[in-house]
């Protein structure tokens, strides 16, 4: 099982969109994918089903002292794609002031660790997080094997890059230098027709080594709005998915290569289904 946390310092850079669509692409490529919505906003669920608000999920387990972390596995929901499953965010507990409780600290990390351990039957656990690198997001980052850092191709987002990298670096040092690894920065909302966006894109690629930035990029595309309205991943938006959907397939393939995921040798034989007999 590989735990990948999608996180960013700035909000609104496309974390949830990346999580949903990357998860879908990975599942279509044959990986057993669990998508965990650890953002109290519940963007993942709201992207996919109207029933998300009622569904129990991540925060019901994390926020309930009575619930054992293992109960999270019973809240995992199936989708029509057998390889793709969801753990909704559930209902985040509120404090006395009416705001969601802030989860952080050693006890939270231990519970998260146990919770993630119950998902070991999955190949990939993708965790969508709230913006920022504090509280629960930081705890999840600390437990991740790898981070995907969406970076909006706009100046303000790009200028938060050092903060994000500093947080990741600090967590690595605290973990003994082993994890979390940086799977890559993902340029999102790229607008090739916009000079500023293009400049950010170019400068990010100039400033960072190739190994830290995915080749794949996610363009700003009206198709995302349509997919969100319909409550589907981009790949299911229409019979012939929009070209933007291919970016996630490319991202998924690149991720496999970067993380050196290998298919089971037992399955890597020469059995093919021929197009014609």
């Amino acid at each position: 099982m590989t735990t990948i946390v999608i996180c960013s310092q700035k909000g609104g850079v496309g974390k949830t969109t990346v999580t949903v669509n990357l998860g879908y692409s990975l599942a279509r490529r044959g990986w057993q994918v669990l998508l965990v919505d650890a953002d109290p906003q519940g963007g993942v669920g709201l992207s996919l089903t109207e029933k998300a608000r009622e569904a129990r999920g991540f925060f019901n387990v994390l926020g309930s002292p009575e619930a054992t972390p293992e109960e999270a596995s019973r809240l995992v929901l199936d989708t029509r794609l057998p390889e793709f499953k969801l753990l909704m965010c559930g209902q985040a507990p509120e404090g006395e002031d009416g705001h969601p409780v802030d989860f952080s600290g050693g006890e939270v990390r231990r519970r998260l660790e146990k919770m993630l351990a119950t998902f070991k039957s999955f190949d990939v656990v993708l965790v969508d997080t709230a913006a920022g690198v504090h509280g629960l997001t930081r705890e999840l980052m600390a437990l991740a094997d790898h981070l995907i850092l969406p970076l909006q191709a706009e100046p303000l987002s790009a200028r938060t890059l050092p903060q994000m990298l500093r947080a990741a670096s600090l967590l690595r040092k605290q973990n003994g230098g082993a994890a979390p690894g940086i799977a890559g920065l993902l340029l999102t909302m790229v607008r090739p027709d916009d000079a500023v966006s293009e400049e950010v894109r170019r400068e990010v690629r100039q400033m960072l080594p190739k190994e830290l930035v995915f080749d794949a990029e996610i363009p700003r595309d009206h198709a995302f709005l349509k997919a969100s309205r319909a409550g589907v991943p981009l790949g299911l938006l229409q019979r012939q998915p929009p070209a933007s959907a291919l970016n996630f397939d490319r991202l998924a393939a690149e991720l496999e290569e970067r993380l050196q995921w290998k298919t089971d040798p037992e399955n890597a034989n020469d059995e093919y289904t021929r197009l014609m007999d």
Partner: peptide
């Protein structure tokens, strides 16, 4: 410049070195 004058290159280089 959108980034070059906003980001400390030395710090960024150190971070990249740490993260890789």
């Amino acid at each position: 410049s959108t980034l070059g004058s906003w980001i400390n290159p030395d710090e960024l280089a150190d971070l990249v070195s740490d993260l890789t």
